[in-house]
Structures are given as structure tokens and as C-alpha cells.
Write a protein that binds this DNA or RNA. Structure first.
Length: 197
DNA sequence: AGAGCGATGGCCT
DNA sequence: GGCCATCGCTCTA
């Protein structure tokens, strides 16, 4: 089984986001292993008004400034978690938000954690992914290249799916940037990609 | 199918 | 006090 190299993550978040589509996210916990294929992600840049890192380092966002390949987990709306893959070199606050995944291993465990049967809705949103995979602050700022509890593996098949670029979801600043990437036609997305002329 | 809204807590002004 | 990188429920069509 191959794995990502550090250099993969030391690039601009939109590039990393595009190339993470098709990759597999895996978590290991005492309850079991969960894995799934990433089909939707968003890039957040260091000079991006929509990014948590825009106003500089804080207690909450400090993991965003870690080296590429680390993990940034945050609490959103007081009740859910979202998981990001940190990009670029240490000191630069950029990351890729994992928004949707196609469940592969541990589907029963995901269904139990989510309290939901429907495969298509199991991981169709950033907080749903975290709930299904058991991701919370315990893994914030973990190195995805060193951890055995949360990690990424590259796409095995050589086939490249069609990628769509669209506007990011749930933000109020820099709304025009098309920094959301998704696999066209996937039934596992948080929303269909809206293409504006 | 789409709009509205409450839950809930940390962080920023 | 206001604002969230959300979700799932309810109401209207």
C-alpha cells in the first residue's frame, strides 16, 4: 500500500484539494476501523477572508499553521466537528476541509455513530464525516503521515474522475472563489455543485 | 424542493 | 452581543 509524501501537502490548498479527491480517509479506534473515499473538499488559503487563519494565529486555529500533512479539527456551531488537511509549510495558515466521503469500511459503525441507515447521507457533509468517523479534538494537530489513528492513502486506480469547481458552502466572505471541488455526478456529496456562468 | 429555524459554545468586536 | 467552514426538523408548495 502506497502513502502520501510530505511534499504532496506542501502546495497550495486548491491543488491539494483537487488531488485529494479519490483518496481514502481512514480512522482507527477501539470501536473499529472506518474508511471512505473523499469526493468533496474545500480549499482555505492563508490570505483568504473566509479562512479561520485570516486574522492570524489563535488558540482555535493554531493547527492550521502546522506543517502540511497535519490535521486541523475544530468545533463548529458549538456542537459539531469539522476536519481539515493542513497544507503548505509550517507557519502558513492554509488547509483543505473534507466535506464528503463515500463510506467503504466500517459502514455499520458509521451508521451506529450517525444514528442513520442511509448510505448516501452517512458522510454527506463535513460534520457528518467527523461524526461517522469518530473524529473530534483528540486528533487536532496530529500528523496524518505518522498517525495510525487517522491517515490518508492515495487513489489506487489510475482512472481520474471528472472534477467540478464551485463556490464554497456556508461562508459569507470571499463567496465568489470557486474553491470547492467535488466529483461530478457523485451521489455522496453534501450538495450538488451549482455551476454559475 | 426549498425556506426557516433552533440547538449550542467558543471566539471576536 | 453577534457571528459562525452545520445539521435535521418542520412548514409550505
Amino acid at each position: 500500500m502506497s502513502s502520501f509524501k510530505r511534499n504532496f501537502f506542501l502546495r497550495e490548498p486548491l491543488t491539494v484539494a483537487s488531488e485529494l479527491l479519490g483518496a481514502t480517509l481512514t480512522t482507527e479506534s477501539p470501536e473499529g476501523r472506518c474508511s471512505g473515499i473523499i469526493v468533496e473538499a474545500e480549499a482555505y488559503g492563508s490570505a483568504d477572508p473566509a479562512s479561520h487563519s485570516f486574522r492570524g494565529l489563535s488558540k482555535r486555529n493554531s493547527a492550521m499553521f502546522s506543517n502540511g500533512g497535519y490535521c486541523y479539527v475544530y468545533l463548529v456551531y458549538g456542537m459539531y466537528y469539522c476536519v481539515n488537511v493542513v497544507t503548505e509549510k509550517q507557519g502558513v495558515g492554509s488547509a483543505v476541509l473534507i466535506r464528503a466521503v463515500v463510506p467503504q469500511q466500517g459502514i455499520e459503525l458509521m451508521q451506529r455513530r450517525r444514528g442513520l441507515e442511509n448510505i448516501y447521507k452517512l458522510c454527506s457533509g463535513p460534520a457528518k464525516v467527523c461524526q461517522a468517523f469518530g473524529i473530534d479534538l483528540k486528533w487536532n494537530n496530529h500528523d496524518l503521515l505518522a498517525s495510525t489513528e487517522i491517515f490518508l492513502t492515495p487513489t489506487e486506480s489510475a482512472k481520474k474522475a471528472q472534477i467540478v469547481f464551485s463556490e464554497r458552502i456556508g461562508i459569507s466572505r470571499a463567496v465568489d472563489k470557486k474553491w470547492r471541488v467535488s466529483i461530478a455526478d457523485s451521489k455522496f456529496l453534501s450538495r450538488k455543485a451549482v455551476l454559475k456562468s
